[in-house]
Amino acid sequence: MFLSDEIRHPASLDEKIVYSADLKLSKANVRYASADARTTGEVLGQALSGFSFLATPPSGSFKMSVLLQISHSTSSPFKGPYLACQTDNEGRVFSIVYGQELPGSPLLPFVTDDGELHHLEFTLNDYLCDLVKHRLSCRDPSGSSRQLNFPDEALNFTNWHVQGIYIGFEVNDTDLRAGTSTPGKVGAIEMGMQIANPKLIHQNGQPYDSSSCHR
């Protein structure tokens, strides 16, 4: 379940953009059918906010869309970045899904919370900065994998804009791995979230220094 909205005046990421919200998990219950289901990560509950970024440089040399996912709480034992990429045959149109927990970013425990809402705040530019440092492994329409660096124009944050936002949670209780010995349901997830005061603020006149973002 997600709440979503498009941004009427897309904001350029060469200036600081801050996202904040007050939230808590009103319900967070997870059950595993086996010890293996606990360790594989196939049973997952996650509260998150997502943002769509778009890069269309003046040269028209490429078009790149990014779905950024910021986790607020997760039942998964696995931490670290998630990066998936698809491209066309010419390597000019990119579609990327990216998730990361940056150092110092707030992450709530996956437990039912009977207390007050927690104020969370994130600078979206920091996530783009981390993303462009990665080398891309992108699949083309034939299924082949290409190893690519971000184009030089993608390192110019003036070419990037925030297009939309969504807030919600995702759950999975089924082992979908190819060749798994435990197909079907391997657990159960119950989740609820309360959220208030979501804000996305484009801080005009506050340039974001992206000089440290280059590989």
Rank of each mutant, 00 (worst) to 15 (best):
N159K: 00
F157M: 03
E121I: 06
N159T: 01
S12A: 13
Y82S: 08
V43Q: 06
S145E: 14
K79V: 04
R139M: 11
N172I: 02
G143M: 10
P58Q: 07
G164E: 04
S181C: 04
S65M: 13
T74Y: 00
P103D: 09
S95D: 10
G168H: 12
A11W: 12
D5L: 08
A21Q: 15
L48N: 15
S12D: 02
Q194F: 05
E121K: 15
L44F: 03
S137T: 01
C213H: 00
H202Q: 10
D152H: 12
G164T: 00
I165W: 00
N149Y: 11
Q100T: 12
Q100L: 07
S73D: 07
V171E: 15
D140W: 00
E101Y: 11
Q163G: 03
K63M: 12
P57H: 03
K79I: 02
Q203M: 11
L107C: 04
Y208S: 03
P106R: 06
L148A: 08
K185R: 14
E6S: 11
L3N: 06
S26H: 10
L13A: 03
Q203P: 05
S212A: 10
V97T: 12
S142R: 13
F51T: 05
F2Y: 08
Y98S: 01
L83K: 05
S95R: 13
S65V: 08
H118T: 11
V162N: 03
A21D: 09
G115E: 02
Q194L: 15
F62K: 06
A21S: 12
Y98R: 03
Q100I: 15
G184C: 08
A196N: 08
I7E: 09
S212K: 09
L83H: 04
K79H: 12
T112N: 10
F78C: 05
S142Y: 05
L48M: 14
L23H: 10
Y82N: 03
F78D: 09
V30L: 10
P81T: 04
G184L: 10
Q194D: 15
